[in-house]
Amino acid sequence: MSTTETTASGIGPVEGASLYDVDNPAPVIESPRKRTNKTPKSTRGNFEMYGWLFMRLSGIVLVVLVLGHLLIQLVLDGGVTKVGFAFVAGRWASPWWQVWDLAMLWLAMLHGANGLRTVINDYAEQASTRLWLKGLLYTATVFTILLGTLVIFTFDPNIR
């Protein structure tokens, strides 16, 4: 035991006297977004349920679509070296591959966006942070989906 004076909880004074005492206790660290009796009661609607179901169903479909896509693009017929403008133009000449790529685009984008939405809900503490992050997310998602859809439907193999 050293001779320095220690307080009841074993925390010695570091520099000068402690800032806190019985009448002036340190602030308690509040947990983020605490539930209180003022927390709004249940909101009607099944959005979260449909979101949860969509993640499961799109996930199953995406396993087939994405693994098939990777197999065709990277493994079969000489691997990645074959991929070029001509290869893409050839595939998109068939409605089957157009539909395949369209489904993959929509499902992957919505699946990823919904996943990020839940991540933002889990981690962003302030309402304004949530609003901005989600705004950014939705803008990027809509832009990518629309651009991708436009390209798949208006693709011109004879472009110069």
Partner: peptide, 14 residues
């Protein structure tokens, strides 16, 4: 893990 708001704002191990 000790925390005593009447002494310090920091929590410490003892």
């Amino acid at each position: 893990r000790r925390f005593n708001p009447e002494v310090s704002a920091e929590a410490t191990w003892e």
